[in-house]
Simulated assay, not measured.
Amino acid sequence: MATTIEVNKQSVKQLLETGKIHKFVIPEYQRPYAWSDEQIQMLFDDLVEYTANDSESTYFLGTVVSYENDLGEQEIIDGQQRITSLFLLLRSLYSKLTSMTETKEVRNFKSQIESALWEQDELTAEVDYEKTLIVSKVMGEEGNEAFTNILIKGKVENDAKDNYSLNYNLFVELIEKYATNEPELFYWFIRNVLNKAILLPITADSQDTALTIFSTLNDRGLALSDSDIFKAKIYNHLDAEQKANFIELWQQLDEDATSASESIQKLFYYYMFYLRALENDRNTTTPGIRKYYSRNNFEQLYNSLNYS
């Protein structure tokens, strides 16, 4: 069966609005949200400079690689840091607008941002502020709930130290200062963030295709490993109590493997040979570990699970 991908340049508003049809999901196997204050500052400064130059050209923000999973969601393989930060930026802009006098400009941009952040009634356009167009399910990430609450409430918990809260507060501070110092440019800034900043979404036909694209494009940091996928598969197979224990066991295993100059990825590789021996598999061609463990709907990963 031929591999297919869809590439379609879109503005931030156009892309985020697709979450109404296929909600954005940051899956369990992704790494936690990790953008620093320096990266937030750089993004904001770049957009401010772009606005100040009064350019009619577009501003390219990068790629987002995803595929439609079995639940009809846009599962993000690459670009989760960028798209998460854009949601936080738009929510902070919306918070600023709600504190301002209701002018035509304020009404216009509030409406546009609402369409990019939350679900709306198809006939009345009434906004459901409790239903966001993105959800993070990163395994063991306490910030998942904080992210959702920020998008719903527009504020963070007192003394919150997660990156979602810290970066949202930084956006709020930067926007307040910018709106005060550059009131004539402020609305143009919002216009540019929504409609002139461009992303290149790459939608794949399967998780494997999306991961292959990600590995090809990604030349910075660590690409997702097969063990990240396996971790999520096992995690989703457990009940709530088992999940908590599994997270602790996985973290301990990761530390032990690192101390032994190994990796969990290698452990899965070694374990595959053990299982093949039990199966009396004499094939001299070594299969890829994702291909091996994905047989029979990942049955090998679930056999004899006990994390309670």
Rank of each mutant, 00 (worst) to 15 (best):
T3R: 03
T4Y: 12
I5V: 15
Q10C: 11
S11V: 01
K13T: 00
L15G: 05
I21E: 13
P27N: 10
R31D: 04
R31Q: 02
A34K: 14
S36M: 05
D37L: 10
E38N: 13
L43N: 00
D45Q: 12
V48E: 08
E49R: 10
T51I: 13
A52K: 13
E56C: 06
T58C: 10
T58F: 11
L61S: 09
S66G: 01
E68T: 14
E75Y: 03
I77S: 00
D78C: 10
T84W: 07
L90M: 13
R91V: 04
R91K: 14
L93V: 04
Y94P: 00
K96R: 12
T98V: 13
M100C: 09
F109M: 13
S111N: 13
S111G: 12
L117A: 04
E119S: 03
Q120F: 03
E122I: 10
V127N: 00
V127H: 04
D128T: 09
T132V: 15
K137D: 09
E141Y: 15
E142V: 09
E145M: 10
A146R: 02
N149R: 15
L151M: 02
I152W: 08
I152K: 14
K153T: 07
K155H: 12
V156M: 09
E157M: 12
N163K: 14
L166A: 06
Y168V: 06
L170Q: 06
E173G: 06
E173V: 05
L174S: 01
I175A: 06
K177W: 02
T180C: 02
L185H: 05
I190V: 15
R191Q: 11
R191T: 06
N192G: 02
K196H: 10
A197I: 02
A197Q: 02
I198K: 14
L200V: 08
A204P: 00
Q207I: 04
I213Y: 00
G221E: 11
G221N: 12
L224C: 05
K231C: 09
Y235G: 01
A240M: 10
A240C: 00
E241C: 07
Q242V: 05
K243F: 03
A244V: 14
N245I: 12
N245Q: 09
N245T: 08
E248A: 12
W250G: 02
D256C: 05
A260W: 00
A260Q: 11
E262S: 14
I264K: 03
K266G: 01
F268N: 02
M272D: 03
M272C: 07
Y274P: 01
R276E: 00
R276Y: 10
D281T: 04
N283D: 14
I289Q: 07
R290Y: 11
K291Y: 08
K291T: 15
Y293F: 12
N296K: 15
F298A: 07
F298I: 07
S304I: 12
S308G: 01
